[in-house]
Nucleic acid binder design. Structure first.
Length: 495
RNA sequence: GCGGGAGUAACUCAGUUGGUAGAGUCACAGCCUUCCAAGCUGUUGGUCGCGGGUUCGAGUCCCGUCUCCCGCUCCA
């Protein structure tokens, strides 16, 4: 226990160090910082936006550089009926109560679930004197109870009759409060209920409603997928853990439309594809795991659901969900819009509503996982022969915000001029950083801290034979490369 | 939402019984430097999270509030 506590404190320190580095070097700033910040909102600084763009670009390539996946960018505001069809208007509302005695908080539906059969019967008898006397079948009790609590207007009556499962006190609950996790706003200048719109809580619906548009425009046949990257918004009760739970975040989603009956096979395929993506971009395998949602806790739309979890300093957290959404969404949109969402298979002459395999990654969460995973403090030798701590982001080169740094070893003998010309030349293809201040060792360390994979140094030998040193971030080894071969060298390493 | 901790320069922190804010790092300018961060000189930079109160006087005491971290709760 003591060890656990110390460990938690260390992990918390680690997270603080990463947050501090992220701010100091321009990855992440708190939103509206000069006004005291806005809870759960963060800004990406110069290096942060480069890295985030790299994450998104890698995802986009891995998805749309395929014959059977098309891209899409749907608008954030959508017709309000979309969210009725998707179930978000209804299901995003979780009434909750707090126990005034012991401060425990419950979701009302969970509280009802935990109420014993005997207690339910008692409550029904009290509510409807005479109707439930004597022998009553268990199923009928459960059914009547559920029917009663499904009416919102009955809630204020029933809550005071329940006892707190934690402290056992009765009548200590606050009134039920509803939390709708969708941000609501208004179209046009008049704020009334007839022109309510929502900020999308997920990007997926933009894909579903465009399913047939994309299919016919791109002449795709099932199975095929639609990929989209975009912002989504949830009015979370609590924000937490840096970028992990925020009210505004970015999703990278791909919905893959398949023939019913083939969904399990595609589900397995995409699960392995998505896990491999994180591994291929350098994330440590031992920090990744699958979490399968228990069947009885599945969301209203899902048949099967797995999350890819990353082990953050604060514990395991979901960075991507791979879900079998069945034909729920398309069917619902067909029902609510009155437009067909069915696909006609020319080969088999069948007409059906496709099943959907969803891969839904958090761009912001993935960003944070890559950042955390790459952060290392290593022992490194100093010029004096001692050892000291070297802070380095071991980012995969394709994710690193800066690819190459260029230094003149000293600021004379024409070295700066040569270094500048190398910089200008490489800048056409790569994000390059030029630095001539302080000792060269210090410049290397500055680049280590932001994950720059390669540093070029112009030295006195350059003046003799037109070669420079290229220093590798991870091994700190150098090799001599001819200036006129640099482009080719980095094309091989970085493209 | 509850409980605990915290908020002082860009970063890490000090600041005595209440007396008008300081260090190191960073940054910038110059000097010096021939390969793995902290050599020299100078300079910039602070509404002490914000608001109110007590006081002759508040970074310091009191109240409120915001934000961050930890735990609980929550996470269709």
């Amino acid at each position: 226990m003591a060890q656990n506590k110390a460990n938690t404190a260390d992990q918390s320190k680690l997270m603080e160090k990463i947050v501090s580095l992220a701010k100091r070097r321009g990855f992440i700033f708190q939103s509206s910082e000069i006004y005291g910040g806005l809870n759960g909102c963060w800004d990406y600084g110069p290096l942060g936006v480069e890295m985030l763009n790299n994450v998104k670009q890698q995802w986009w390539r891995s998805m749309t550089f395929r014959e059977n996946v098309e891209g899409l960018d749907a608008s954030i505001l959508m017709h309000p009926r979309v969210w009725e069809a998707s179930g978000h208007v209804e299901n995003f509302t979780d009434p909750m109560v707090d126990c005034k005695q012991c401060k425990a908080r419950y979701r009302l539906d969970v509280l009802f679930e935990e109420t014993s059969l005997k207690k339910k019967k008692e409550i029904l008898r009290e509510l409807f004197p005479g109707e439930y006397d004597g022998q009553v079948k268990d199923e009928k009790v459960v059914e009547s109870f559920e029917k009663y609590v499904s009416q919102d207007s009955n809630i204020p009556r029933i809550v005071p009759m329940l006892a707190c499962p934690n402290c056992g006190n009765k009548g200590t609950f606050t009134d039920a409060r509803k939390f709708n996790l969708m941000f609501k706003t208004f179209v046009g200048p008049v704020e009334d209920s007839s022109n309510v719109v929502y900020l999308r809580p997920e990007t997926a619906q933009g894909i579903f409603v465009n399913f047939l548009n994309v299919q016919s425009a791109s002449r795709q046949k099932i199975p095929f997928g639609i990929a989209q990257i975009g912002k989504a918004f949830r009015n979370e009760i609590n924000t937490k853990n840096f970028l992990f739970r925020t009210r505004e975040f970015e999703q990278m989603e791909m919905q893959f439309f398949v023939k019913p009956g083939t969904d399990v096979q595609h589900f397995d395929y995409w699960r392995s594809e998505r896990m491999q993506w994180f591994v291929d971009l350098g994330m440590r395998k031992e920090r990744l795991q699958w979490h399968q949602h228990p069947k009885d806790k599945l969301a209203h739309y899902a048949k099967d659901a797995y999350d890819i979890e990353y082990e953050f300093p604060f514990g395991w957290g979901e960075i991507e969900g791979v879900h079998n959404r069945t034909n729920f969404d398309l069917s619902r949109h067909e029902e609510f819009s009155g437009k067909t969402m069915k696909y006609f298979d020319e080969e088999t002459k069948e007409k059906y509503t496709p099943f959907v395999i969803e891969t839904s990654a958090g761009a912001s969460r993935s960003f944070m996982a890559f950042l955390v995973d790459s952060y290392r403090e290593e022992e490194a030798p100093t010029a004096e022969g001692g050892m000291e701590v070297r802070t380095v982001l071991k980012l995969h080169p394709s994710l690193a915000p800066t690819k190459i740094a260029v230094f003149p070893l000293v600021n004379r003998d024409g070295m700066p001029e040569i270094a500048r010309s190398i910089e200008a030349d490489l800048r056409r293809n790569f994000r390059v950083f030029y630095d001539d201040s302080g000792a060269v060792g210090r410049r290397y360390r500055r680049q280590d801290e932001v994950g720059t994979p390669y540093c070029i140094t112009v030295d006195s030998e350059t003046l003799q034979n037109k070669t420079v040193t290229v220093r590798d971030r991870d091994s700190m080894q150098q090799e001599r490369i001819a200036i006129n071969r640099l482009k080719e060298y980095f094309a091989l390493k970085l493209l």
